[in-house]
């Protein structure tokens, strides 16, 4: 599955990372080599093997649906790039 230049640009767009054409060419070489290494997996027969997502196969624990956290908005917003009246500021989304 040889990686194409356009696929690197597509991944960069999906991941919201600004990438110039020349940066993409640089990453293409490296990522191609990494994916060639990864392609060794294809030689292994995994027919009927269930995917393993959690090493102990634990399932998600549930707890009672109750409020356990108090509001610490001011504290959490202290590390924000830009806030006003308790709101996070970003460039205008809707004109």
């Amino acid at each position: 599955m040889a990686l194409e230049h356009a696929e690197v640009l597509r991944a960069a767009h999906l991941a919201r990372i600004d990438l110039s054409e020349s940066d993409a060419a640089h990453y293409l070489d490296d990522i191609r080599r990494i994916l060639e290494m990864v392609d060794q997996l294809q030689s292994l027969d995994t027919e009927g093997v269930a995917p393993l997502a959690h090493p102990l196969e634990a399932t998600q624990r549930l707890r009672a649906d109750e409020v356990t956290e108090t509001s610490l908005r001011d504290e959490y917003q202290r590390c924000a790039p830009q806030v006003e009246n308790g709101l996070y500021l970003v460039p205008r989304v809707v004109e």
Binding site: E7, V8, A11, A15, I31, V38, Q42, A50, P51, L52
Partner: peptide
């Protein structure tokens, strides 16, 4: 991030991510 985004994207997920979890 680019590798992860690519391997999880449509058309590649089964060949990469699912396969890797089986392995």
């Amino acid at each position: 991030i680019l590798i992860g985004t690519h391997t999880l994207s449509e058309g590649f997920f089964d060949a990469y991510y699912k396969k890797a979890q089986q392995v």
